[in-house]
Design a binder for these strands. Structure first.
Lengths: 227, 227
DNA sequence: GATTCCTTTGGGCGTATGGCCAAGACCGAT
DNA sequence: ATCGGTCTTGGCCATACGCCCAAAGGAATC
């Protein structure tokens, strides 16, 4: 089972380095304490600069949040696309996509968490733009689900939007209880969730006894090789 | 299919009325804008009193949040217990419990939402007490799942804690996309989620063809009679 | 009608916040 | 060496926040 990795960590120019430090610090603080409870002075200090320097790059605290959220959507889309790669099996695509999404959420930077859990802090004016990008990501997932559904392996009765909502819910919620030192890696958690949900969705009338075999195989493989 | 309702709306004494107004207003505002972005002046105004009066009942803003969260756990536990009532079938218990939880989250007061999504705002000192009560609620659910698992209808390989996490995730996440005027009621959504997840969990080797029948029956019944 | 206790009032205090800016440092290009 | 633009500095300002309180109000009891 291949390890999912993030694509192309690009080198940092000096100014991108400062921007990067700001977003990284802001992401960590927003995730820990929430947007409103974090001060620009804290962000600046964590990014090793003075408040004025931060203001030079981002005119307002809202702009930092906006940039962070836009980056989150971009990275999520990138990570999932990269993880799927050239895989053809539509069901396997979903499993790999889930892993990538969850690994980004748990081990990647904090922007995705902030996007998901600090949504209310985004000022009404800026919401529209992020919403549009986020909708693209969701549409991308709907495409994966639609493809899997069309492959004939899924239940005939399927509300794809509802399935996506449930799937996102289960997987995003992991961020609220996952602790890095635990005995399950994000990859294992994602596989387990896939197995639980999939074998409620997948319909194989011709070989009913195999259901448990498939299920057990995914679980066993995932829990044997850590990652 | 019986409509799930909230138990015993108790009458209000004059002072309880003031407390109630505060918590109700605070719940709405915390849910809309988050704890940190809400001012005590706003809460007081929404509760039709002056800031000083609010301070008389709750010494600090944190205390309001604490009271709100404790109430949320209490109400959730109460609602689920009441919904289950005297039902014996362990699987049906779970379906009814899910409905009750989701209806409280979507149609009830906002305290449950705040408990779930403003967790970070709770000051470290107060966290322990709420955590303990919340753990009881989770343990209660684990009991339901354990019972259902022990009934022999579930897959032999089952990590109950993981299943609870996934279930809570899917159901709690509904609060982020549900809109009251939509074409699905919370009850329907809960039933759909139950059906999707259950028929990945339930193992009935003796009658594989019935799987879809059961699944379709739940979905059809839920979507026919609104609520 | 007087006393007591609970509740509300309206305002005020100290503080920390988000945003801003004039002056200077840095650095590659000329 | 000098210039021009980019970036940083350290401090400032108006605001709005959480919290507090002395005094007044109101209701029930004796």
């Amino acid at each position: 089972m291949p390890v999912v990795q993030t694509p192309t960590p690009q080198p940092a120019s000096p100014q991108e380095d400062a921007d990067e430090r700001i977003l990284k610090a802001a992401g960590r603080l927003f995730r820990e304490k929430g947007f409103a409870a974090t001060t620009v002075r804290e962000i600046a200090a964590a990014a090793n600069m003075l408040p004025g320097s931060l203001h030079y790059r981002y005119a307002s605290k809202d702009d930092v949040l906006l940039a962070l959220m836009n980056r989150a959507v971009r990275r999520a889309m990138q990570a999932v696309r990269f993880a799927i790669g050239e895989v053809k099996d539509p069901v396997e695509k979903i499993r790999l996509g889930l892993r990538a999404h969850l690994e980004l959420l748990c081990n990647g930077d904090d922007s995705l968490y902030v996007l998901l859990f600090d949504w209310r802090s985004l000022p009404a004016g800026a919401r529209e733009g992020v919403e549009r990008e986020r909708a693209k990501y969701e549409a991308f997932w709907d495409g994966l689900l639609y493809e899997a559904h069309g492959s004939g392996k899924a239940r005939p009765i399927l509300d794809i939007e509802l399935v996506r909502h449930f799937g996102f819910g289960a997987i995003n919620w992991v961020a609220t209880w996952y602790r890095p030192g635990g005995d399950r890696t994000p990859g294992q958690i994602a596989d387990a969730m896939f197995a639980y949900l999939a074998y409620g969705l997948i319909h194989e009338p011709s070989r009913p006894a195999d259901l448990d075999t498939h299920f057990a195989a995914i679980m066993a493989a995932s829990f044997k090789s850590r990652s």
